[in-house]
Amino acid sequence: MSFQNVYTLRKVAENAAKSCEVCFKPSSSVLITAENKDFFYICPSHLKDKGFASPVIDKAAEEAKKKKEEEEKEKKLKEEVERVKREYEEKKKKKEKEKKDGKDEKDKDKEKKKDEKETDSKDDKDKDDKDDKDDKDDKDDKKDKAPNTDEPRVFALQKFVYQQRLEKRRQIEIAKRNRERMAAPGYFPSVPKGAP
């Protein structure tokens, strides 16, 4: 009974950890086949060993991930453009309102200087707020991406290790068949009933 050499990494609760197949230390990481025919506990450090297993890269998943990241960037860019447009419209309305009020030129000059100082300070505050927001967004993005990018989820065992898993599975099947045969009533010979 064979199975494909494609194992998916799963995590179990810490209290359900069992010994690693290689080093026998408690591990909460499990490699399991798609059909659930074979599974074993393994330490995450062994998965990084190229002599044990190699990650399987799913190109479709990688492309979907890149596409999603590009869409998020475009969305942020559109939001930024909308924000800048609103600010520009507000400033434009403010200037038109000042023209309608018909203030003296001296008052206008004083207000312009004052507005420039205020806009500079507002721009500095906006930049600081924006930087803080970007930093928070970057941290959130890193938190979201960290579990997905730190370690791959699908592995292919090296040929030698895979052959060991197949052999172990065959031995389990043979032992199970032998137990069933031994439990059958006609397996052992009966005691002789006649005289010797």
Rank of each mutant, 00 (worst) to 15 (best):
N5E: 01
A64F: 08
V56I: 15
A17K: 10
K85T: 11
R83P: 06
L77R: 15
K48R: 09
F40P: 02
K50E: 15
L31D: 02
E74T: 10
K68I: 04
E96V: 13
V81W: 07
P26K: 14
C23E: 01
S19C: 02
V30A: 04
K95V: 11
F24W: 06
A17I: 03
H46D: 03
K100P: 07
S45V: 05
D58L: 06
A64R: 14
K68Q: 10
H46L: 00
K99V: 08
A34M: 10
D49S: 06
C20P: 00
A64E: 15
K65A: 15
C43R: 03
T8D: 03
S29F: 13
E87P: 01
S28G: 11
T8P: 00
V84E: 00
Y7I: 12
L77H: 03
C23I: 04
E14L: 10
D101M: 08
L47F: 00
A17L: 00
A34P: 05
E82K: 12
C23R: 09
E14C: 10
K97S: 13
F39Y: 09
F24T: 14
E21L: 11
E63Y: 13
S27H: 00
T8L: 09
R86Y: 00
K97T: 06
A13T: 09
A17C: 05
P44A: 00
K75I: 06
C43L: 02
K48W: 04
K94D: 02
L31R: 06
V22W: 00
N5R: 11
F24A: 15
S29I: 08
V22Q: 01
N15K: 11
T33V: 05
K25E: 11
K76A: 07
K95I: 11
R86A: 10
R86M: 04
K11M: 06
V81F: 10
F40K: 08
K37G: 10
L47C: 01
V81E: 09
C23N: 07
S19A: 13
Q4M: 13
K67C: 07
F24N: 11
E98Q: 13
Y41D: 00
K93R: 12
L77F: 14
K95P: 00
A16L: 08
D38S: 08
P44L: 09
D101N: 09
K94M: 12
A17F: 03
L47Y: 00
C43F: 02
L9W: 03
V22E: 01
K95Q: 08
Y7K: 04
P55A: 04
V81T: 08
K91F: 12
K50Y: 08
T33I: 03
E69K: 13
N15M: 13
K91T: 14
C23P: 00
V84Y: 07
E74R: 06
A17P: 15
R83H: 08
K68H: 13
K65M: 09
F39D: 06
S28Y: 09
A53E: 05
K92Q: 12
L77K: 14
C43M: 02
K78Y: 10
L9Y: 02
R83M: 06
S45Y: 04
E62M: 15
E98K: 05
F24S: 09
K97R: 15
A64N: 14
K99R: 10
E21V: 12
C20T: 03
F52H: 09
C20S: 03
K50V: 14
I42E: 01
A53P: 14
S54Y: 05
K18T: 05
E80K: 13
K67H: 15
K78Q: 06
A34F: 13
N15W: 08
D49L: 07
P44C: 01
Y41K: 02
